[in-house]
């Protein structure tokens, strides 16, 4: 068992712990920081699996851009101690029983099915060059579709946010 294998299991444990803490926090900013830690741990796993380009994208876009966007909205809404107290009232321990049992059953079934068919991952890294050649060759249509999706999201976010900003300006004025 080499050191890199140990690194994988360490990163997996960090990712699971940080994700569990994310969904149980009452303060939105704390949950976001734990989510960023979880994403960074998954980026380490990507690197260990031989996908350095996916690891870089995970850090730059996921842990960087998308999480900063979340943080901006949390700060804009100005959620303070009151919001955390209300969240604590909403989040009673007994609420976890039903969903926890249901998702736990599904997870156990899947672990049973996956563990029944052992196979090693190849251990050969896939370079960013190979990814780029595939991406702008056979997958060109998917890239165009992703561009249209992002444009639609941009228009939708602008439409929803503009009404919010106009209302804020009227409140201030």
């Amino acid at each position: 068992m080499s050191l890199e294998i140990v690194l994988f299991y360490l990163a997996a444990a960090v990712a699971l712990a940080a994700t569990g803490l994310t969904v149980t926090r009452t303060n939105a900013s704390h949950a976001l920081i734990y989510l960023i830690i979880s994403l960074l741990a998954v980026a380490v796993i990507f690197y260990l699996l031989g996908a350095p380009f996916a690891a870089a994208l995970e850090v730059v876009i996921y842990a960087g851009a998308i999480m900063v966007f979340f943080l901006f909205v949390v700060m804009m809404l100005n959620l303070g101690r009151d919001a955390a107290a209300q969240e604590r009232r909403w989040l009673l321990p007994r609420m976890w029983i039903g969903p926890g049992v249901l998702t736990g059953v599904l997870l156990l079934e899947m672990i049973y099915l996956i563990a029944g068919s052992p196979a090693m991952s190849s251990g050969t890294p896939v370079s960013p060059k190979a990814v780029g050649i595939e991406l702008f060759g056979p997958y060109l249509l998917a890239v165009e579709l992703a561009a249209i999706l992002l444009l639609a999201a941009l228009v939708g976010a602008l439409h929803l946010g503009r009404r919010y900003m106009r209302a804020r300006r009227e409140e201030i004025a």
């Binding site: 080499s2 994988f8 796993i45 699996l49 563990a115 068919s117 196979a119 090693m120 890294p125």
Partner: peptide, 12 residues
């Protein structure tokens, strides 16, 4: 180099 982690562990 990439490590040969069992893929079922990653999927789990």
């Amino acid at each position: 180099t990439a490590v040969a982690v069992p893929i079922e562990h990653v999927l789990i």
